[in-house]
Design a protein around this nucleic acid. Structure first.
Lengths: 218, 218, 218, 218
DNA sequence: CATGAATGAGTCTTCATTCAT
DNA sequence: CATGAATGAAGACTCATTCAT
């Protein structure tokens, strides 16, 4: 009960805008503001993915957003804050997908959970692979920490619950390996080998990798 | 015989990076030149790892190298060429380590090879983790391709030779998964959790991951 | 009628320089912008004439214009564009002078036309002799072409109309000689021997040169 | 007598290296030195004409000359001195041609002299038109003065001798006009309209221009 | 608040020239 | 003397950010 409760709370809170230091100067309370902010974020994402990080100057972003450079700085105190905001938004989107897929699986068997996990990760990475890549590379590690930490906690909780069914004993290591492996393989697949994802083969293979590691019968 | 021979030839050639595109402007012929080039590369690595990509301006690099900016451009036609050169140098160093550890293991059993592979990867990443991270993130994908491709070919050849002892049937997928998983986990460990590497636990765990995937007895 | 019409149209259009290639980056829309652009062009001309081409660095120009270097590049995409723009402006000014003096002379007798032509050229060169010299020497031939071509066409049309009154038969050669001679002599006079222009002597002499060539009675 | 004597002396001295401020650091007394100096001058001319003034860096010149940059500075104290030296050399060459053609024409009739003068000028410009153009544009007016002044003096002397056969009375103006007109027309022809020179038409026309001016019978 | 003109520190890069070997 | 490595002032240009309108 408790655990489940904790779980649901946690998952639900994944999408909450975490209170970060580089807060947008102004909460978009009015519609106009919200539209402007969205336009800016959308333009940023577009330039980042289609033209690369170097071309993503604030002036160009403002231009593509159909907004004056002054307005951009009205809503984002600095370029860093803008990028960070976009990154958080993107992470939240991805996490929301993963969350929705993993909801109610806390008591499901390992095979099912892993299968869904891999599927969810692939789906999340499919949202905007290039954006994810660029953000991953250029953003100096501020964000995801929060959302990721919650995810890590959940995964750990799940593994503890099913401890007797898995081989590895050091859960810290196990969580580390699971998380990183799914992320890396999913990301690599989406970016470098999208063709491998068309049929479910690679997905299955990744699932096998994790599954055999967790439940291998040596 | 032939296979082994091929193997050795291949591995030995991993470090021969044919410098084509971004060739250093002038091959250092005198001792003084060599010292200068080394100083520049060393300074570049130092700034990259300790101060970040943004601080790595050519003037600052020259300054830290104790060399005039003119000298820097005497040996590297552009900043990109300099970074590329450093990247190649670093990849070569890492590959040399991996090569030396995997030499003569072409006919060794899977457990041994995987064990050595993981160990070699960790060792390679330990050379200069931050540099590897920065280069991985910022350098627009020119390098490693070559050396990596050879490594991929070798791995594939090994798997083909031992095909009857492994579970996965689609070797393309398998190679993809093995490579990416080791790289990602090793990299992540060295960067984010170096403490996990002190005792051999994580290394063993990664080995287990790969091993159980390859030879699992479901 | 028609000819005269053509003539007037043509002359009127001499000053319309279609700015194509090296277009100013941003057309000044506000008053402030116009002032800035003017200041930059003025400063450029001043430095070019008073300090020479080598001293005409973009930073120095901006400084003398009392404008930041950023503003300079806001309106001119490159140094070349700036110089070109100034050159066009100057050629237009000179051509406007020549045009206004030669207007309505299409049917005038040769003596009058030549007299006015020389006078007009001298007047045009007197606008800013040093600037004309520097631009003539350093600017890689982009400009005048257009305006000059029209002038050439006009001159040729005039000569054709009066063909029976002139000695030379090959109009191509004649036009070439007339144009180059007036330009060269006028330019040389203004630059190297301004004192020769004070009284009308040299002007008269140049006129004689051209006149005797065109209508000589050998 | 006296006049003729003066004339010959003058013409003969046209080719003398005038004692200028920017003297080559070292007079090429030994063969080695002379060869080196020649190689440098030749390379300079080649780069200037074939690649343009911007590409003519001292290092590049030294390289093409097959000489070290240090050696270049052994013989020429500065880039300016090098260019100046080349310019003088070129002017001397051109003047030598003109001189040899005009030799012994001091008492010849005007028609002959003008004809030969134009021919000589065209021949002189044909030596290396591009070099002449580039030097004319870029070199800050140091040189020719000397040689040109002598030529001017000669021309003036000739006109004085034949004063009663020419129309213009102000010899200063006349000399100015003759010199500039031939130079400008010849130069323009060689550079912009070389095709006009193939048959003798343009040459004849230029001669006519000058002739009709000098001897016109209005 | 929106606008966009203006700012200027800071980047990469060149090239004439010097000087140790 | 020749060599060529080294120098560093200086130039063209960018871009995050500010502020007058």
């Amino acid at each position: 009960m408790l655990v489940v409760h904790f779980h649901q709370l946690a998952f639900d809170s994944l999408t909450q805008m975490p209170r970060k230091s580089t807060t947008p100067r102004k909460l978009p309370q009015q519609d106009r503001s919200k539209i402007t902010v969205d336009a800016i974020l959308t333009a940023t994402a577009r330039i980042l993915t289609q033209e690369g990080y170097d071309r993503a100057t604030t002036n160009r972003i403002a231009e593509l957003a159909g907004v004056s450079i002054g307005s951009l700085y009205q809503y984002f105190p600095s370029k860093e804050a803008l990028i960070t905001s976009l990154a958080e938004h993107h992470v939240n989107t991805m996490m929301a997908i993963i969350e929705s897929k993993l909801k109610d699986l806390f008591n499901a068997p390992i095979e099912v959970v892993l299968h869904e996990l891999v599927e969810a990760c692939i789906a999340a990475h499919a949202v905007d692979p290039m954006l994810h890549k660029v953000l991953n590379e250029q953003v100096p590690r501020i964000n995801n920490t929060n959302a990721e930490a919650q995810f890590t906690a959940l995964l750990r909780a799940y593994l503890e619950l099913h401890r007797d069914q898995i081989q590895p004993q050091n859960l810290d290591l196990t969580v580390f390996i699971l998380e990183r492996a799914v992320e890396a393989l999913t990301h690599a697949a989406v970016i470098d080998r999208p063709e491998l994802l068309s049929d479910g083969q690679l997905q299955q293979e990744i699932t096998n990798l994790l599954l055999s590691y967790l439940v291998e019968k040596t």
